[in-house]
């Protein structure tokens, strides 16, 4: 099991100015650009034993830190 803080820490590595709450809007608000999202994906792939594919690059999977956590846990099961 992973915690939401692991996700938030990764986001903060990518953009130190951010400190999002678990349900904070990330994409539509522009806090994470598409370049940031790809950096995050690489970090997620590296830190957790998962493989994010282009099919997973949907807005609903990255909308909030909680959504990211949900996606990571789902991918770990496969």
């Amino acid at each position: 099991m992973h915690t939401i803080d692991e996700i938030i820490d990764l986001i903060r590595e990518i953009n130190p100015l951010l400190n999002p709450k678990p349900e904070e809007e990330l994409i539509k608000s522009g806090k994470l650009t598409s370049v940031d999202v790809m950096s995050l994906v690489l970090a997620l792939n590296g830190n957790f034993d998962i493989e994010i594919t282009p099919l997973d690059l949907k807005e609903e999977n990255f909308r909030t830190p909680q959504a990211i956590l949900d996606m990571v846990e789902r991918l770990e099961e496969e």
């Binding site: 990518i14 970090a43 590296g46």
Partner: peptide
């Protein structure tokens, strides 16, 4: 798709081993 492709995954691992986690992402 390019960033998630196999060649790029190889490159990512290379970065992680030789340089560090920041470079890897």
């Amino acid at each position: 798709p390019l960033i998630l492709s196999k060649p790029m995954q190889v490159f990512t691992s290379f970065c992680r081993e030789k340089v560090g986690p920041t470079a890897a992402r």
